[in-house]
Design a binder for these strands. Structure first.
Lengths: 354, 354
DNA sequence: TCGTGGTGCTTTATCGTTAAAGCACATCCG
DNA sequence: CGGATGTGCTTTAACGATAAAGCACCACGA
């Protein structure tokens, strides 16, 4: 193996320069292809750098250039409980791929130590460990996020934050999406007595999805026969919501869950009570981060392009870091309905395998 | 839209020192509680630092101290396909929590862009962006991982790497675990004609699990009536494996899949063919990263403590970084069997909700 | 012949932090 | 009362990279 020799101590630019017989400055200029360095020297320097396995010290570069060469992916601690794991993975994948193209490191910062009054991610930014941050799914009223987005540091939020109109955000139109899938239930499957199990209503996402449901129900004249129960995006909340109606659940013929986890919990509760899905009750979820495809019946849902959201947000972030400030402050990416078995669209077990 | 924030430039230690009327060095000593600084000055410095919102520059510190204050979580691109998203999330959670306790940043390096012949994660280490790395590799022979672990840089591998005896690893005993769950199928459920769908056999995990299966089958004298099919840990491979037997599948009464994804794929294929699980065939998976609990029937599996593995690995990494070099080179954490419906232990639909 | 303009490097200074050495001044002990 | 020890700061230097300025040297035109 050992094509590249094992190095006891790190190779610095000086080592490279010395081997060529010039100063570190000249070597630096050579590697950055300066016009003030002869082609011959450039070739020599490049060869020496390759031979010695020179990799610039990120700390020295960061200090000198006042640029960390890293972006932070910030996850306020509440998020872990509120959103599933897979959502975050999709986001990380998106951020990573864009960052990679820019030779930038990705730093993941969750918030657990608020010991010194500063959120962990505020420290990350203030210490200049990262040049900018992607903030994912914060609560409506997270004061740290608010301060961060108003600090003047490059920050892009994933989601919708009407309370922070000056921030840069990339999200989806939750209202329209939830309205669309509700309409699907009403128009295609003829459901008339609908229930919505919402997320925690201190999250904008939860509010918007509820409003979308209500809009679709209202426009169909079904507002009277509908109800909303507040959940918290957890599987258990979906289960509880269905249980809480007791026998009253038999009057419902369609349930719109604000996410897939709750839909799965609801599905279990319905099955426990001897109700069939979609026979007795048609249900739909939201997110499509993995779970909804696996259940029996599989759950019809709104596919949220999490990875794309992250990708677009990160590209936006780099623009801001580079001083390019055009582009809309608030962007919405399109979503699609993924029709499966739980609403009655696809016969149980008939989904093509691949 | 371009308003200039109050904190235009960052607060440096010099700003703090100037406000107190001393030099930056003295301020530095004050903040590190040096005995050569008077209590009065220390108090003043601390107050000024708090007032100005001073946060040390990570780059300057890293350069001066020759320590980045960050660890890297390295995920070779093959790993992501082999293990799912959830595995990775558990690992990230574990690494983060330990790193957070040590005021250390977590840097995630996934793609290996081999543009300049150096894997992305080798650049991370060589550029001193991180003081050490946790590597979640799967393949038996990743030359970059090999080189990294032999470079002398602090590295801890999650998994088992018998071909790298000098490396520090934290894993589980795949052989024993797969043998145990196979024995469960044989002894508790009386299966006699067993199939194993393995992972790709250039992965140590796949090899070990297969060997565990074979050991258990051999000790029960069932080697003759058993077979092994090589898969690749994907859902589709599980599906294909079952299909590939044609009607021959009806001679099988127990299938040990090397992970849950393949078990789910196999479950679908079995159901498609009109076979019931666990009635006609008892099946088990491996991992328990989320999926196996969601399916119908839920899948009996080996629970891999991914978060704990990551936590232990990270603690080990910090020890190495700090120069503490005791502790075993190769550690195994215990696993547990999670009995669900697919083997026949728990009646379908009878699992307690919480 | 002198100046003007490249060319190709070296010198210098800086980013922010911190260990080590330096230096006044005070205090203690024999 | 003079050397030793302490106290509390300042000065210096270094971590590694890199812009900017400096400086030889050569070539060319007037």
């Amino acid at each position: 193996m050992g094509k590249i020799p094992a190095h006891r101590s790190a190779v610095t630019l000086r080592d490279v320069a010395e081997q060529v017989g010039i100063t570190a400055s000249a070597a630096s200029m050579a590697l950055s292809d300066s016009s003030r360095i002869s082609e011959k020297t450039k070739t020599l320097v490049r060869a020496a750098a390759a031979e010695l396995g020179y990799v610039p010290s990120s700390a020295a570069r960061a200090l000198r250039n006042q640029r960390a060469g890293a972006v932070a992916l910030i996850v306020p601690n509440t998020t872990r409980h509120v959103f599933g794991h897979s959502y975050f993975m999709h986001v990380l994948t998106g951020v990573s791929s864009v960052a990679n193209d820019r030779d930038t490191q990705v730093l993941v910062s969750t918030n657990s130590d608020e010991a010194n009054g500063l959120a962990a991610y505020e420290r990350v930014m203030r210490s200049k460990s990262a040049d900018g941050a992607i903030v994912t799914s914060a609560a409506v009223t997270d004061p740290y996020v608010e301060r961060l987005s108003q600090s003047g540091l490059p920050v892009v939020l994933i989601g919708n934050f009407p309370y922070l109109p000056d921030s840069i955000t990339v999200g989806i139109d939750d209202v329209a999406a939830e309205a669309a899938i509700t309409r699907h239930l009403i128009q295609v499957h003829g459901t008339k007595r609908l229930m919505h199990v919402s997320g925690p209503l201190d999250h904008q996402t939860a509010i918007d999805r509820r409003d979308g449901f209500l809009a679709a129900v209202a426009e169909a004249g079904l507002l009277e026969s509908s109800l909303v129960i507040e959940g918290d995006f957890s599987e258990d909340a979906g289960w509880q919501a269905v249980r809480s109606l007791g026998q009253g659940i038999r009057d419902i013929d369609g349930i719109v869950f604000a996410n897939d986890d709750m839909a799965f919990g609801g599905l279990e509760a319905l099955t426990d009570q001897g109700l069939t899905v979609p026979g007795d009750v048609a249900i739909v979820g939201f997110d499509d981060f993995g779970l909804s495809r696996l259940t029996t019946p599989s759950i019809t849902t709104v596919s949220v392009p999490a990875e794309d959201l992250a990708r677009v947000a990160t590209e936006r972030l780099f623009d801001i870091i580079d001083g390019v400030s055009d582009g809309p402050a608030h962007q919405h990416l399109p979503v699609s309905l993924t029709l499966r078995s739980s609403c009655g669209c696809v016969p149980k077990g008939a989904q093509p395998h691949r």
